[in-house]
């Protein structure tokens, strides 16, 4: 479960106030809203990359508001993949486990498992500059899943892809979320993406977040 409880965020004239909504455990939540409305800010607060002015953030039953990003048990896939520029795909996917000082054999096995599952086993020795947009997003997804997070946070992961690739990756995201039983929060401004992926949808307008009733 992901829960925002009376969250507030201020940056100059831009304000988010009393943001409260919940993505139930094991469900795929999609948050829609126009560009610049504060969707990414909310996701960054959930990641621990920004501190809220007020309110709390829960992952499961745990209040993670004051926890550092690495202790929240999240997998984060940003818009452009945000690849580590000097690392190979193998190193990117193994990064979270290497930071946790897991044994080399365990890292290698996890990298192989994820690479096979995401269809990127042939890319393991490549560096980011030799990957296409779709490949980058698959690698970013593998990197986010390596440490077995309980929630998956996706910031417009499909926006830079062409339509065919977008459908293919959307199907992959849904499959991965279902198979691993993850709670996901996916940010987009595309209604089509929401229709394809969402178990539960939210709309952000004028600093408020409302649940969109399913049709």
């Amino acid at each position: 479960m992901i829960r925002f409880d009376n969250l507030a965020w201020h940056a100059g004239a831009f304000r988010l106030e009393n943001i409260s909504f919940t993505v139930p455990a094991g469900r795929y939540g999609v948050l829609m809203g126009s560009t610049g409305c504060g969707k990414t800010t909310l996701l960054e607060i959930l990641c621990g990359l920004r501190q809220p002015a007020d309110g709390h953030v829960f992952i499961g039953e745990r209040d993670v508001t004051d926890l550092p990003p690495g202790e929240r048990g999240i997998g984060y896939v940003p818009q452009d993949g945000a690849m580590f520029p000097t690392m190979t795909v193998r190193e990117q996917i193994g990064f979270a486990l290497e930071i946790r000082q897991r044994p080399a054999a365990e890292i290698a096995a996890r990298v192989k498992e994820l690479a096979d599952s995401l269809g990127i086993a042939h890319l393991l020795e490549r560096r980011p500059q030799h990957l296409s947009g779709g490949e980058r997003q698959r690698v970013a997804l593998g990197r986010a899943l390596a440490a077995k997070p309980s929630v998956l946070l996706l910031d417009e992961p499909l926006s830079a892809l062409d339509e065919e690739l977008r459908d293919e990756l959307a199907a992959l995201l849904k499959r991965v979320q279902r198979e691993l039983g993850l709670t996901a929060l996916h940010i987009t401004h595309s209604r089509r993406e929401a229709a394809q992926l969402a178990d539960v949808s939210f709309r952000m307008i004028s600093g408020r977040v409302d649940e969109v009733p399913s049709t």
Partner: peptide, 16 residues
């Protein structure tokens, strides 16, 4: 000229 986003991602993966 270096994006800060990869650094943010590294932090979500367990780095200080």
């Amino acid at each position: 000229h270096l994006l800060s986003r990869p650094e943010d991602v590294a932090m979500t993966l367990g780095c200080t």
